[in-house]
């Protein structure tokens, strides 16, 4: 799945600082930084595992995300830092919001070697609790909260985004806690997002991340 865009040199969607590299004979996306989750490292480059990272999977399959490299990023749902550590490797100031204490401890560890990664133990549904820390006009709002009300979270955090910025959200159908077909659930969440954003792309993330939809959007 990742092989095609990488093999024919179609890397134009990759942000600066993300490169296909060879690990043990396999081409994989990688960033430069200290390892975080036991991923292979070579010459200072750490392999980015698309099975453990939805953003890694999106970049691997050629989705245009708006990340350019050096961007200012607000990342919601950082967990223990698997993905946001890669983001901080290629981006500029990266604000990482996570509300669960246990993964936040690992997130702090990932942030120790990354001076541009700012861990915040906050609830993404309450932006007023971190608006005194996170700057306005961020280039990319990335969201992976896997919790009920994912559309509302994206809308409430619109205020941090630059007018020409990007929303990149992964939506997990089961988290919405409603019965009915997955497509319908995705439809509701996308409708909510569209109250504040113009949707550019949606893409199902099967098979690496079943039950997930990636949404790329620009603020209205």
């Amino acid at each position: 799945m990742t092989a095609t865009p990488l093999a024919d040199g179609g890397d134009s969607h990759l942000p600066d600082g993300v490169e296909p590299r060879t690990f043990d004979g396999d081409q994989r996306l990688a960033t430069r930084g200290e390892p975080v989750y036991g991923e292979p490292v070579q010459d200072g480059w750490r392999a980015w595992d698309p099975g453990r990272s939805k953003l890694g999977a999106m970049l691997g399959r050629g989705v245009e995300t708006g990340f350019a490299g050096g961007d200012t990023v607000l990342y919601l749902g950082a967990a223990s830092g698997t993905t946001v550590s890669h983001v901080a490797d290629f981006a500029g100031p990266t604000y990482a919001v996570e509300f669960a204490p246990r993964p936040a401890r690992d997130l702090v560890r990932a942030a120790e070697s990354r001076p541009n990664l700012f861990p915040l133990l906050k609830d993404a549904r309450k932006p007023e609790t971190y608006a005194h820390v996170v700057e306005s006009g961020v280039d990319v709002l990335f969201q992976d909260v896997a919790t009920r009300g994912q559309g509302e979270v994206a809308c409430r955090n619109r205020q941090f985004l630059a007018d020409d910025g990007w929303l990149v959200a992964t939506i997990k159908a089961r988290s919405e806690d409603v019965t009915g077909p997955t497509e319908v659930t995705f439809g509701h969440v996308v409708d909510t997002i569209e109250t504040e954003y113009e949707v550019v792309t949606t893409e199902r993330m099967d098979p690496l991340h079943e039950d997930h939809l990636a949404v790329v959007a620009r603020p209205r």
Binding site: P93, P101, R102, A104, R105, L107, V108, A111, E112, P115, N116, L117, F118, P119, L120, L121, V133
Partner: peptide
């Protein structure tokens, strides 16, 4: 500024996560 912000965020999050746990 970013250096000070990094120190403050790391200290705040480490302290609060530890307390909660």
């Amino acid at each position: 500024y970013y250096t000070a912000l990094h120190e403050a965020c790391v200290a705040a999050t480490r302290g609060e996560a530890t307390e909660a746990e």
